[in-house]
Amino acid sequence: MKKGIRLNPKDNVGVVIQEVVPGDEVDFDNGLVVKALDSIRVPHKMAVKDIKTGDYVIKYGEIMGYATKDIPAGSHVHDHNCDSEKLMK
């Protein structure tokens, strides 16, 4: 079992603190265990829930961006599937 950190119960992403390869189970505490679909470096983000295109990506309990494509739980979340341009003035 690998370790991750989910900072807020509202968050749909967590930070991995051990290198993750597909198939690894990652423990984000409080019983939340997610199976990795991608290789994820420390300290990059993993989706801990399914996130649909256009849904907000939540970290620290706040909006950090939105999904630019469907992101299944266990995926690496980064600039290939998450942006924030439309949130800006």
Binding site: V15, R41, V42, P43, H44, K45, V57, K59, E62, I63, M64, G65, V77, H78, D79, C82, D83, S84, E85, L87, M88
Partner: peptide, 19 residues
Amino acid sequence: TGRTLARGNMEGGLTTIQE
């Protein structure tokens, strides 16, 4: 505009300026 980040920030796992 959402990527007001340095290369090193993104390698370090930061995706958007809001994050």
